[in-house]
Computed example of a mutant assay.
Amino acid sequence: MSIQWKGIMPAVTTKFTDNDELDLKTFELNINAQLEAGVHGIVLGGTLGEASTLLDEEKRLLTTATVDIVKGKVPVLINIAEQTTKGAILAAQKAEEDGAKGLMMLPPMRYKSGDRETVEYFKAVANSTSLPIMVYNNPVDYKVEVTLNMFDELLKCKNIEAVKESTRDISNVTRIKNRFGDRLKIMTGVDTIALESLLMGADGWIAGLVCAFPAETVAIYELQKAGRIKEAIEIYRWFLPLLELDINPKLVQNIKLAEVYTGIGTENVRAPRLPLHGEERKQVINIIEDSLKNRPTLPDYKNL
Rank of each mutant, 00 (worst) to 15 (best):
residue 69 I to R: 04
residue 40 H to Q: 15
residue 276 L to G: 09
residue 89 I to V: 14
residue 41 G to I: 08
residue 224 Q to W: 09
residue 102 G to K: 00
residue 114 G to P: 08
residue 259 E to W: 02
residue 165 E to Y: 04
residue 50 E to P: 11
residue 250 K to E: 15
residue 100 A to G: 10
residue 256 K to P: 00
residue 89 I to R: 01
residue 224 Q to F: 12
residue 264 I to E: 00
residue 284 V to I: 14
residue 8 I to W: 02
residue 110 R to S: 14
residue 302 K to D: 05
residue 76 V to L: 06
residue 19 N to W: 02
residue 263 G to N: 09
residue 235 I to Q: 08
residue 168 R to E: 08
residue 286 N to G: 10
residue 143 K to G: 00
residue 234 E to Q: 13
residue 261 Y to S: 12
residue 142 Y to S: 10
residue 301 Y to E: 09
residue 44 L to Y: 07
residue 134 M to F: 05
residue 136 Y to M: 08
residue 38 G to H: 13
residue 76 V to Y: 05
residue 215 A to C: 02
residue 52 S to C: 05
residue 213 F to N: 07
residue 118 T to I: 06
residue 116 R to H: 09
residue 168 R to P: 00
residue 146 V to Y: 01
residue 153 E to S: 11
residue 303 N to P: 00
residue 156 K to S: 11
residue 296 P to Q: 09
residue 75 P to W: 02
residue 66 T to W: 01
residue 91 A to F: 06
residue 197 S to Q: 05
residue 57 E to Y: 10
residue 45 G to S: 14
residue 89 I to E: 07
residue 78 I to Y: 12
residue 117 E to C: 12
residue 174 T to V: 15
residue 302 K to V: 04
residue 253 Q to W: 03
residue 83 Q to K: 14
residue 289 E to S: 06
residue 302 K to G: 10
residue 109 M to Q: 10
residue 162 A to D: 05
residue 281 R to H: 13
residue 160 I to T: 11
residue 106 L to G: 00
residue 295 R to T: 01
residue 208 G to D: 07
residue 252 V to N: 03
residue 287 I to L: 05
residue 25 K to L: 14
residue 133 I to Q: 06
residue 231 E to T: 10
residue 256 K to T: 01
residue 8 I to M: 06
residue 251 L to Q: 11
residue 244 E to P: 00
residue 189 G to K: 04
residue 240 L to D: 01
residue 131 L to N: 03
residue 193 I to A: 02
residue 149 N to I: 01
residue 221 Y to C: 01
residue 142 Y to Q: 11
residue 7 G to N: 03
residue 200 M to R: 03
residue 170 I to C: 03
residue 41 G to C: 08
residue 29 L to P: 00
residue 189 G to M: 08
residue 134 M to C: 15
residue 56 D to Q: 13
residue 290 D to F: 02
residue 199 L to K: 12
residue 96 E to P: 00
residue 226 A to S: 13
residue 36 E to R: 11
residue 132 P to A: 14
residue 295 R to Q: 13
residue 150 M to V: 04
residue 138 N to D: 13
residue 157 C to L: 12
residue 169 D to H: 13
residue 174 T to G: 03
residue 276 L to K: 13
residue 245 L to K: 03
residue 144 V to Y: 10
residue 204 G to I: 05
residue 262 T to W: 13
residue 35 L to R: 03
residue 301 Y to C: 11
residue 179 R to C: 05
residue 223 L to K: 04
residue 115 D to L: 09
residue 68 D to C: 00
residue 107 P to K: 06
residue 122 F to M: 08
residue 248 N to P: 01
residue 61 L to Q: 15
residue 150 M to Q: 15
residue 205 W to Q: 03
residue 267 E to Q: 14
residue 237 R to M: 11
residue 220 I to D: 02
residue 231 E to L: 07
residue 189 G to T: 10
residue 255 I to Q: 00
residue 10 P to T: 07
residue 44 L to K: 07
residue 292 L to M: 13
residue 150 M to C: 12
residue 24 L to I: 14
residue 250 K to T: 07
residue 132 P to V: 14
residue 206 I to C: 06
residue 91 A to W: 03
residue 72 G to F: 05
residue 220 I to V: 15
residue 233 I to G: 04
residue 302 K to W: 12
residue 276 L to C: 11
residue 239 F to T: 01
residue 262 T to K: 04
